[in-house]
Amino acid sequence: MSTKRYDGLSRRGFLAGTGAMLATPALAQDLDSVNSAATTQGERDLTETVRRNVSSFRTLEWQPYFSNLRNGAVLVDIDSRALHFWNEEGVYKLYPSSVPLTEDLTRRGRTSVVQMVEGPSWRPTPAMRQRNPEWPEFIGPGPDNPLGSHALYLSWTYYRIHGTHDTRKIGRQSSNGCIGLYNEHIAELYGLTKVGTQVLLI
């Protein structure tokens, strides 16, 4: 089901601290505040310019991964940091994405979209709150929300495919388990998917 509300752009500083999301495993962090960039991959300074050429991503066929395209199909390739979408009408989309920070936070396998929210709210997991007690317990839709403009909730607890207002995170290891897209891309994907869309993370 969809909640039709969205109140604006997110504060980028908070996003730099929280990462693209919310899996329960604890990740050692040295965060003085939610404005820290410590949850984004350490091999590159966030102030550096990073070239992200979508045309260099490898296009894929759906048949090796899905038996059909009923309700559409999403494939997330963690290694190439790309999300693929196909549907029965012949639509194919390829988006750059953010991926989990570490292998421990990465979940692979089959799941599906169970809820779709425009203007999502956000709650840190208990593990996040324990590590960062200064973080708020709840953020509603709008400028402070780390889930961007739209979120696709998966059948796995705490896992989402969602937007981000912090565009530095796309193409990087920057989440606690979720998959992040540019807001314009998650809005497009939101319009193509439905509850029941197949999702496979490899």
Rank of each mutant, 00 (worst) to 15 (best):
G196M: 09
V117G: 05
L83Q: 04
T59D: 14
G140A: 10
S36Y: 10
A151G: 01
S67E: 15
N132S: 03
F85H: 12
T18L: 11
T18F: 05
L27N: 11
Q41V: 14
W62I: 04
G90F: 10
S56T: 15
I170Y: 04
Q63I: 11
L94Q: 13
A151S: 12
P141G: 14
R110N: 07
Q41E: 15
T106Q: 05
P133Y: 06
S55P: 01
D166K: 00
S97F: 00
L189P: 00
H165Q: 01
D166Q: 07
T111R: 00
C178R: 11
M128F: 15
M116P: 00
H84D: 10
R44F: 01
D166E: 11
P96Y: 07
R51N: 00
G119K: 04
R11I: 07
Q198W: 01
Y159A: 09
S98K: 04
S121G: 12
K169M: 15
T197G: 05
P96H: 07
T111D: 10
S55M: 07
L94A: 02
V76F: 00
I179H: 04
D30K: 14
L15W: 01
T40P: 03
S10T: 13
S155K: 13
G90P: 09
M21W: 12
A16C: 00
V34P: 09
I161Q: 02
